[in-house]
């Protein structure tokens, strides 16, 4: 997550980051709809397994593999275990793509 100070710092960069962030969340929403077989999904950064009935340990593995495939990198086990919600996943994707 960006600190408030960092956000206040470089406006131009922040805009670019926000653009990318919205693209990532858009793509992630599509992936989650497919993986969890949802009719629709209102994306929020604090979405987690507690909010989605179909999100269990098995579909979580499918989710991780789908993210790896869509963004073209591999997530380590410790990275996966460190995630508490979808927003943190977006942060991680941004870091990996940077």
């Amino acid at each position: 997550m960006h600190t408030p100070a960092a956000k206040a710092g470089a406006t131009r960069k922040m805009k670019k980051d926000q653009m990318e962030r919205s693209e990532i969340t858009e793509q992630l929403t599509e992936i989650m709809i497919d993986v969890f077989d949802l009719d629709e999904l209102d994306y929020r950064d604090d979405l987690s397994a507690a909010d989605i009935e179909e999100w269990d340990s098995l579909s979580n593995i499918r989710f991780m593999v789908s993210v790896e495939k869509a963004f073209g990198f591999r997530l380590s086990n410790s990275e996966i275990e460190s995630l508490d919600n979808v927003g943190e996943m977006v942060d991680l994707i941004q870091q990996k793509l940077a």
Partner: peptide, 14 residues
């Protein structure tokens, strides 16, 4: 190997 150690998946999900 990651899926094997993590969840005893016999092969890659793909």
């Amino acid at each position: 190997p990651l899926r094997w150690h993590d969840a005893k998946m016999p092969c890659a999900l793909d």
